[in-house]
């Protein structure tokens, strides 16, 4: 990404973004509400164009409908998917862009089984999407994003609405996907804690410019205090760090 600025309507969301995210890395994206995290995701997907600068993703300029990028959107608006089977929703991730009707076919079924297995969702794939828990729905969303065998995975706040155990489950799953398949992961989150043990790097959006840094270099109380606008203390432990907010 080189010298990128982005506007929505007439409003400047952020500018002066110049950084490279290493292929195969697990990068967290943090920033306050409205700082433009989802906007960054949308830029990478080609859904919106930068007003200045250039963005390359996986060695090519951004474009819409790139099957090499899997998406798990924020507040995944699946309000109308409640009646659909989980496995059909996953199947749509692959077949949903093709002409015609129906979601049958042995090849498709085998690919869906594979995607469900990758997120450990075989046991509820045959249930309706509206009948499974929030954590299970998130797994289905990830399976759907994985079904095109993307080289990059964008997750926009996949932890919202999950309890602590559920958050850890999802982070472990994404870590596994990153580690085993070499998929580059961009993980938007408000809470770094569940991620710290696994991420390599960080994109933080403060004061209108996204900055990139390796975890060990940038995660300190100074940055986090700036980020959250409230004093934060970092406590390092052997396998990562834990930070706490102080009054």
């Amino acid at each position: 990404m080189h010298d990128v600025a982005v506007h929505r309507g007439k409003r400047l969301i952020w500018s002066n973004a110049t950084f490279d995210v290493p292929v195969g890395s697990f990068t967290a994206v943090i920033g306050p509400n409205g700082s433009g995290k989802s906007t960054l995701v949308n830029l990478l997907l080609g859904g919106i164009k930068p007003s200045t600068g250039s963005i390359d993703v996986l060695g090519a300029p951004t474009r819409t409908g790139n099957p090499e990028i899997g998406l798990v959107p924020q507040n995944h608006s699946l309000a109308h998917a409640g009646s659909i089977l989980c496995r059909d929703l996953v199947a749509l991730g692959l077949a949903g862009t093709r002409w015609g009707v129906g979601l049958h076919g042995r090849d498709l079924a085998a690919t869906v089984d594979e995607a469900l297995a990758a997120v450990d969702a075989q046991s509820f794939g045959h249930l309706r999407f509206g009948e499974v828990s929030g954590g299970q729905q998130q797994r289905i969303s990830i399976a759907q994003a994985l079904i095109t065998k993307p080289r990059m995975l964008l997750l926009d706040e996949p932890l919202s609405g999950l309890d602590l155990a559920g958050q850890v489950d999802i982070v472990e799953l994404v870590h596994h996907i990153n580690h085993e398949r070499g998929v580059t992961v961009l993980f938007v989150t408000h809470d770094l804690n569940p991620l710290l043990a696994h991420i390599d790097s960080l994109i933080y959006l403060i004061d209108g410019t996204p900055e990139f840094g390796m975890v060990d270099d940038v995660v300190d109380s100074g940055l986090l205090t700036r980020l959250y606008g409230t004093p934060v203390q970092v406590t390092r432990s052997a396998d990562g760090c834990v930070f706490t907010r102080t009054e």
């Binding site: 409908g65 998917a81 749509l92 991730g93 862009t97 015609g100 009707v101 129906g102």
Partner: peptide
């Protein structure tokens, strides 16, 4: 049919997939 189904139940991802 299939595209319409995708766009109806999962508009965000359908749009992202082009």
């Amino acid at each position: 049919g299939r595209k319409l189904l995708f766009a109806s139940v999962d508009p965000d991802v359908a749009a992202a997939r082009g």
